[in-house]
């Protein structure tokens, strides 16, 4: 039962994008089409699973002082692997994701989970955590991309939707639409959970290396 909780917490309670506010760049950039969102979500999940397992295995080996560079090298290795697989098997997706595929390296979700979870928990729990976080990330991307694709382009997974196709609000698929939809989704989650989420988002930031820049930690 508690094992199951490791997976489900990533989907709603500690959703990496909407609650922990990690990985905003790829979320905003890739969520213009539902199919790209699924591709990005799965690619990031694969990297997260690999890095969480290996970092958890090596947690007593890696010296504490150089842990961040070590994590980055490990993550970059997994990203290169995923990059090659995507290029080989789904070339259209590779072209659609473009620069955002190698940029999974600096996705805060992956480094954040390594720092917040994998380096203090067992291998099995870290793997489950990665799966949960990955599902949470993919689902959020899918919801955002669906909203933007259906209303902005009048299609869903490339299928045309009769009335919306002729009455699309094309600004939604462009940059400002991304900011608006993301802002509204966070507000919605915050409304449903009655403000609990926002305080969570601020207290769970210490693991992110850019937490200091965000002003969530007092600058030394």
């Amino acid at each position: 039962m508690s094992r199951l909780k490791e997976v489900t917490k990533g989907i709603i309670k500690e959703n990496p994008v909407l609650v922990l506010i990690l990985g905003t760049c790829p979320t905003l950039a890739v969520s213009t089409q539902a199919s790209n969102a699924i591709g990005m979500g799965l690619a990031a999940t694969a990297v997260l699973l690999g890095s969480n397992i290996v970092i958890s295995l090596l947690r007593s080996v890696i010296p504490d002082k150089v842990r961040i560079p070590c994590y980055i090298v490990l993550i970059a290795g997994f990203v290169t692997l995923v990059e090659m697989i995507v290029e080989a098997y789904t070339y259209t997706l590779y072209q659609a994701l473009g620069i955002y595929l190698p940029l999974i390296v600096v996705n805060c979700i992956i480094l954040g989970r390594a720092e917040m979870y994998a380096n203090k928990n067992s291998v099995l729990n870290s793997a489950l955590d990665a799966i949960g976080m990955g599902i949470g990330f993919t689902l959020t991307l899918l919801v955002m991309a669906s909203i933007r694709e259906i209303f902005g382009n009048g299609t869903w997974f490339g299928m045309e939707i009769p009335w919306l196709k002729d009455n699309s609000i094309s600004v939604l698929t462009m940059a400002p639409g991304g900011f608006v939809v993301f802002g509204c989704l966070i507000a919605l989650v915050s409304k449903i959970s009655k403000g609990r989420v926002r305080t969570n988002g601020e207290s769970k930031c210490e693991g992110c290396p850019s937490a200091q820049a965000c002003g969530k930690q007092s600058a030394s």
């Binding site: 400002p176 802002g183 507000a187």
Partner: peptide
């Protein structure tokens, strides 16, 4: 509005700037 406080309203303003 209460639920827009903090990050959401910041994102909406960013959208207007981006526009």
């Amino acid at each position: 509005p209460e639920s827009f406080k903090g990050l959401p309203i910041t994102l909406i303003s960013a959208a207007i700037l981006s526009l």
